[in-house]
């Protein structure tokens, strides 16, 4: 495959360091070269409702940077950025007037947007580009079978499905395939599997954000999963970092180990807790960590 650039977004490089650490060390160990999208900034996604033009400008700018730097493929680690870039491509294709306005702003930096960049999700990269079979060949271990792992895809990875996605938006399976490729038992379905973590509410309605978070966590825990995994740093912030706060707001305590999927693959690759930022997980991961190292 051609070279692929990674776009880190805002929240990973400023707070969710565990995602940057684990993504970097996993790619390095798998032999995938990480190329940085230089001069990147925010993709504008939080402002898509209140300031749509600001969003479209910032998002188109990221895509135009990829073109300027010769990258055909762009991998945003954040689900929000992923959806932001896909939605921008979809919207600007339909709306010539907005496309022309955005082009004027981009021209001030000498940038051009054509919309031809292929935006690739982390799960899509592993499953379809690196290859599910290759992951299985390298990392499968029968001894992990007794551990049940539930996947949280995150809304922005899948919806709205009118824009083509890497997986079926209503019945996705690729995350579970990857979990099983490592040898774990994937929980195929659980109540509210495709529900939200609540993160988009944090800025304006933090208490409701925690209620939505709690609803998701309670249902994920009810599935009997030993571990809940995600790839998105906003989802992780809610499911892991804010799990205790969610318990307080929800009224009924909830307790489930949560990890980045990058951390789980990293353990299978033999990487250390430090290399994967596992010291930052606030959910009860210690209860299961030793078992996962097998």
């Amino acid at each position: 495959m051609e070279k692929i650039a990674v776009y880190w977004g805002c929240f990973t490089p400023t707070k969710q360091y565990a995602l940057e650490l684990s993504t970097r060390s996993v790619f390095e160990t798998l032999g995938v070269q990480i190329l940085e999208l230089r001069n990147s900034a925010c993709c504008g996604y939080p402002y898509r409702g209140v300031k749509p033009k600001l969003w479209l400008y910032l998002s188109a700018r990221i895509l135009a940077l990829a073109e300027e730097q010769g990258y055909k493929y762009l991998l945003p680690v954040c689900n929000g950025c992923y959806n932001s870039l896909l939605k921008t491509q979809h919207f600007l294709k339909e709306r010539k007037d907005v496309r022309e306005e955005v082009a004027k702003y981009l021209a001030e930096e000498g940038l051009k947007y054509s919309g031809r960049t292929k935006v690739v999700h982390f799960l899509e990269y592993l499953h379809d580009y690196y290859g599910l079979d290759k992951i299985k060949e390298k990392l499968y271990s029968e001894s992990r079978k007794e551990i049940k792992v539930a996947a949280h895809y995150g809304c922005d990875a899948l919806r709205p499905g009118e824009i083509p996605r890497f997986d079926n938006p209503r019945n996705p399976t690729k995350f579970e395939n990857l979990i099983e490729a490592l040898g774990y038992t994937a929980i195929k379905d659980y109540p509210r599997k495709l529900d939200c973590c609540g993160a988009p509410l944090l800025a304006v309605n933090p208490e409701l954000a925690l209620k939505v978070d709690w609803l998701k966590l309670v249902n994920a825990a009810s599935s009997g999963a030993n571990l809940l995994v995600t790839t998105c740093e906003y989802c992780f912030e809610m499911l892991d970092t804010k799990q205790e706060s969610a318990s307080k707001v929800g009224g009924k305590p909830v307790s489930i180990p949560v990890m980045y999927f990058q951390q789980l693959i990293g353990l299978a690759l033999g990487l250390s807790e430090k290399e994967l930022g596992l010291n930052f997980n606030m959910s009860p991961v210690e209860s299961i960590l030793e078992k996962l190292k097998r």
Binding site: C10, F11, P13, T14, K15, Y17, S40, A41, C42, G44, P46, Y47, V50, K51, L54, L58, A203, V204, N279, F280, N281, M282, E286
Partner: peptide
């Protein structure tokens, strides 16, 4: 949102770098 947009205008990103605690 005002705060985040101002941060984008000064640093490019929506947030400033944070110090965070581990377990």
């Amino acid at each position: 949102y005002v705060k985040m947009i101002k941060t984008v205008a000064s640093t490019g990103l929506s947030f400033e770098e944070m110090d965070i605690a581990d377990r």
